[in-house]
Design a protein around this nucleic acid. Sequence first.
DNA 1: TTGAAAGCGATACCAT
DNA 2: ATGGTATCGCTTTCAA
Lengths: 343, 343
Amino acid sequence: MNPRKTGRHLTQAVTIKDVASHLGVSPSTISRALARPELLNAETRARVLEVVEQLGYQPNLIARNLRLQETRLLFVVVPTLSPFFLEVFRGVERGARESGYAVLMGHTERDAAREHLFLDQVASQRADGAILVTSSDSAALLARSKRMPPVVAALEEVEGLDVPTVRVDHRKAAMDATNHLLALGHRRVAHIAGPDRQTIAAHRREGFQAAMTEAGLDPHAYPTLSGDYAVTLGESAMETLLTCNPPPTAVFAGNDEIAIGAIRTMKRVGLQVGKDISIIGFDDQRIASLYEPPLTTMRVPTEELGYRSILLLVDLLRGKADVPDTVLPTSLVIRGTTGQAPA
Amino acid sequence: MNPRKTGRHLTQAVTIKDVASHLGVSPSTISRALARPELLNAETRARVLEVVEQLGYQPNLIARNLRLQETRLLFVVVPTLSPFFLEVFRGVERGARESGYAVLMGHTERDAAREHLFLDQVASQRADGAILVTSSDSAALLARSKRMPPVVAALEEVEGLDVPTVRVDHRKAAMDATNHLLALGHRRVAHIAGPDRQTIAAHRREGFQAAMTEAGLDPHAYPTLSGDYAVTLGESAMETLLTCNPPPTAVFAGNDEIAIGAIRTMKRVGLQVGKDISIIGFDDQRIASLYEPPLTTMRVPTEELGYRSILLLVDLLRGKADVPDTVLPTSLVIRGTTGQAPA
DNA sequence: TTGAAAGCGATACCAT
DNA sequence: ATGGTATCGCTTTCAA
């Protein structure tokens, strides 16, 4: 409509004193009318509420927080804004709402400095606690050992950080995924892994290798290519794997994005996915069921992970001293990209 | 490692007084050593810094904020955690960092009450301002006309809210999308729209209708099905459209997710997408280029939208009174799902 | 160059 | 049932 808007908001904020003097009562009365109405004469309270409404008084949270020494605010720190971490965030939010906390999210792009920034905000009492949904190799966090604020790690332990953790067993889940391929008769199995220095990726790789070794196969028969969890990695890694002689009949991808990239390459060279070659992903992201063919994958209970984390964190905030770690189960979701090994 | 962790963090925080008395100086000196070192004797400063380090002192931000009357914190409020809004968030973050602000994200699930909650947090000075990436029909926001905190709307005007806005022209972009179909010779064109009461969806629908009318075609030849921006809507709507006689030869989907749903149905019934039938999406989400066939769509500069919003907001915070609205251009991205109308 | 003290805005204890 | 007042932790003016 009008091309320019003005800074109407810049008017001075109404304080509790303003309301009080307006009514000729003390600030205490205003505070009570809002926080503990039962302590007040019903009529006084009504008058206060009216003036509050009329003046548009909003208590200054900063002042209240300072006085109360709590913010009822929690941070969730995720490494990237990928759908995977957002699922976790959803769970966190649900739990937070149930527990009377508000949640705000920050992301770090796997930058340790930015991670610190958020923790500092908590240490500096801008929030009461934080959930760290990190997947970074945050050995750097070790440094700040003193005055660690209430923190819970979701998804995976944070190396060198001794905090309660809600996670899945990535290693075992990776074994399960690999074993699914093995059970279908595959013997030439390759793995495309996530970032080398990332704990989770490392655990998944270990799981793959353990399952292969247990089955009497060489886990290093094919090179384990690795990189960021991205479609492009899957594409290029698969190209490389197809140049091997003989090429693998099955691939265990470090996550769904990598799997989809690999499938794109498979399709491009005319391979029938699920028949000529099998592939299994990891995480069961939303796209997994939507893709064609729908992706067989290892489901990680992301939302639940977030939910349980926040419950732990709230326990911590309530002063519970001993908070147990939690390990949630993963589950194999068989869809269209895995089938019997070709004869 | 150890199954239980303890609440080590519960130790009392170190305050500026602690540091001061530790050194036998006044709190002012500590404050200055940290904030305005040039005012201090170099040697004193060094001593302070050392003790600060040693005690692990972290200034309490709440107290500082109260004193300074600013938080250097901004909120971004998005309706849902969809990839689309996250792109906007990315841009916001980039701009915020450049301007020396931290950003935290909250989402509302299109719940007006939750939207208010965030704005109240700002009004209550928990943050200095907010970006509203809303797409809801938040007429409800009208109510809180007084004491509106510094807010900028991104993506689309918020109805009834007179704040600076950075947006795209959804109506014109929808016309462009429709015209692309028309230019390919299509005459039987249908539209599958987003949520009925959402401003953006309404504008896109208007654009479609305007383009059709301008070309001398009846925009209501096919029912305009609508619903949440979701794959499932696209699937079911497309099923309905295919029962029409004759069915459309082209479809303009309200966003990429709907388009993908529609394509799934098309494929399922054996239609060659881009040949037998054409479809164009909207937004150019990441999946658009990844899908098969790659989706023709209307690109919305999401990241840029966020970036520009924050710059506006910072202007506002710096007291600039007149802040101009900004309209960013969209662009047609032609990929594989649109082709000549069949003879 | 440093210290003392006021004050940011709310809450809660202690009176009355 | 209500008021007065200390207090939360920090910054900054004013004095020395």
